[in-house]
Design a protein around this nucleic acid. Sequence first.
DNA 1: TTTCCTGCAAATAATTTGCAGAACT
DNA 2: AGTTCTGCAAATTATTTGCAGGAAA
Lengths: 158, 158
Amino acid sequence: MPPGEAHAGGGDAVEDVLQLLRTGGSRITTSRRLLVRTLVERGEHATAEELASQVQSEAPDIHLSTIYRNLEELERRGVVSHAHLGHGPATYHLSATAHGHLVCEGCGAMHEAPDELFEDFAALVAGRYGFVVDSHHFAVIGRCARCTAAERGAPEVG
Amino acid sequence: MPPGEAHAGGGDAVEDVLQLLRTGGSRITTSRRLLVRTLVERGEHATAEELASQVQSEAPDIHLSTIYRNLEELERRGVVSHAHLGHGPATYHLSATAHGHLVCEGCGAMHEAPDELFEDFAALVAGRYGFVVDSHHFAVIGRCARCTAAERGAPEVG
DNA sequence: TTTCCTGCAAATAATTTGCAGAACT
DNA sequence: AGTTCTGCAAATTATTTGCAGGAAA
């Protein structure tokens, strides 16, 4: 595969999603094609606004509200998920590339967490409450190693 | 202790917090007194607006922005924490009564989770990434037992 | 009396919605 | 042609901020 189109599958992934939309009775529009392509290229958490920016770099007229509507549609089809990572806006990504997140409340750094990290916890919660954890849908908040270390030296309030 | 003032400590807890503010150089105002009292009485997650409503039932002039500012202040002192439970507004509670949450993405039901539930998970994350999990600060999203069961019978999309 | 706090109004930020026209099938 | 999508503007929701007056220490 040529460099620059790294992400497994490349354009095929885009076509797969578009086909899914088509099959479901949705229409394939420029905004949807570009949005799906953007999502595949990023493969990573991005806010609606970031996605819009990138889409708009190719088609400036596509409105942010259209991005929101399309994301909603894609989410309804199960192609996309969104997560609320602490404060700021929600982030979106393809369900296929979904994973958990560790977000540092000190510096805001975000770390990706493999599903496997949540396995035991999910099993525990399921066993005890019958609650099925969706580890992709929320961020685990806490303090990263660096911030934890930094705090040992300097106290917080002045 | 008289019934109706259940929550461990009762009015003392309010005074403790106020004393902490005083000591820190903050002033004790009506809005702060009422807010702290409300937080102690609820002991549970409440949105800024819910807190404002209850405070306003005793002092109608207290503005929502004052509630926000006071919550911010209390949070700075470590008395209060807030968490982002999925969509909607943030919820606030005394740090002392803090605990984790399981929020069902199907029906929105919220279940409180004891700290102990997160112990192993936190240890795993700490060991592997040096990341210190703050289990009170985020909601574990997933599907409650009821919604999971309901879905086995009825498929999602129409 | 000095500084902090508050009410109010207005600004922001994130997202949603109504509507008439444009685009897909 | 018929329905679904889209752009735009405006409404919503959650929260923050500037300012001038009011209150705590």
